[in-house]
Design a protein around this nucleic acid. Sequence first.
DNA 1: CGAGTGATTGATCTTTCTCAACCCAGGTGG
DNA 2: CCACCTGGGTTGAGAAAGATCAATCACTCG
Lengths: 253, 253
Amino acid sequence: MNMLVTPPKTTDAAGPRLARALPGLTEPERLVLSNLPAVTRFVRRNTTLAHEAQPLDRLRLFISGWAKRSVGIGPERQQVLGFVLPGDLDGLVADYRQAAPADVVTLTRCETVEFSLFELLHLTQDYPGIGAALRAYLADEAAILGDQVLRLGRMSAYERVIHLMLELFDRQALGAPDGTRVDFPITQSLVADALGLSVVHVNRQVMRLRKEGLVRLDRRSLTVLNFAKLQSLSGYRTRIRERAPDLASARAS
Amino acid sequence: MNMLVTPPKTTDAAGPRLARALPGLTEPERLVLSNLPAVTRFVRRNTTLAHEAQPLDRLRLFISGWAKRSVGIGPERQQVLGFVLPGDLDGLVADYRQAAPADVVTLTRCETVEFSLFELLHLTQDYPGIGAALRAYLADEAAILGDQVLRLGRMSAYERVIHLMLELFDRQALGAPDGTRVDFPITQSLVADALGLSVVHVNRQVMRLRKEGLVRLDRRSLTVLNFAKLQSLSGYRTRIRERAPDLASARAS
DNA sequence: CGAGTGATTGATCTTTCTCAACCCAGGTGG
DNA sequence: CCACCTGGGTTGAGAAAGATCAATCACTCG
């Protein structure tokens, strides 16, 4: 399914992006990551990149576009574990579990960069800082998953919607002032699958938030109009870590 | 609060336990872990070992007893993210996040072994296999958290209770035949906080499972009477990895 | 222009919660 | 030894959040 658009080796543009996605690397570590062979791909919307329970041997860095991680239960039910945003990695957990823990499906057209997991992990032997960065990345992912549990367990539908919006806001524009617009290329039906709610009920919460003047939401973007208020309504606490200097600016022209 | 019962250094008994908790280590790696200084502690029931948002500098291995990871939201609401069982580690995520992502509270009297996180991570520089094992451990934890999301998002109360029981069964007696009894030292109220349900409703599901002859459950133990049936009822899939040769046999006499 | 997707709203039904008892076992103080 | 107290479990009844069913609308795309 995936369309390979660029030639197999685009070493010069891709490596630095990976180095940028991982926190706290030293200069030599960044350098060696930059030289890691990489393949840039452009993937259509609605493409399954990884099947649940199917082993993966490559690490995928998202440059642009969104994806979801989801698990199907029964014919009509699916649970979205979380969203993959530009700058996020996918495929790191797979190696240790021998199988991807969930399906990964693109929600928009995506630009991704693929690395050999084997080669990357081999580097950790000589560059322990890379191993540490990978652990830090896993810890970040766990924190985000923990927030997902928080939402689903004890929060009302209203709180869940707010909490998720704030997370997705923070992951794109941490600390930005009220009125900032961020991407929101997902349907309400997808939000419902993430929050364990029906589409209808999600819509009612969104309508309510609009009437209250707390957010603006159209087909592709979200504007948070009163972060502080939303924060106190949902008990949201930032767990997102500041990312290295912005990823987007490093995109191929 | 914690009572220090044993003398500060019990190097000979504790280290091997840590080596045993981590998957796929080589012999020299096991050896060096065995020599890591360690402190054995016996902790009373209901002791908070780690506060949310408070940094941690030590890794804690549970030898016996259970604990919970929980996050409070509001005065009366708490969400249990998961349970810590004998053989599990706590404190690994903390270092990378600078803060524990949740409270850790003992549910029974616990025997734990503490290691310096700094010293352990220092070892990863010379023994990359240890770093890999830590990543594998983090990946395992993420898989268990993912299952928790699955339960909370799209499952009925009945399914949630079954699914959790099977997870806790597998984590103690993976692959054991029907009729096997495992520890279950947690109250229904705690199960409710884990599954995002009210105590009353949890009780109704438990009653139902008893009437249907699928499980036996008393104050401290759970007997799974028909694993296959329960599995198909809840869609449960084993994600637990086989542990190294049993931990209990290594306990100090 | 017709088809399909996603959003929106109303009406009704179901699951789960909340409140309120009551029971039982184990521990404690007199 | 007993009366009492407490934590946990069990059950019933009414209330509420959220699901389901159904219909309409706006928009995009071939």
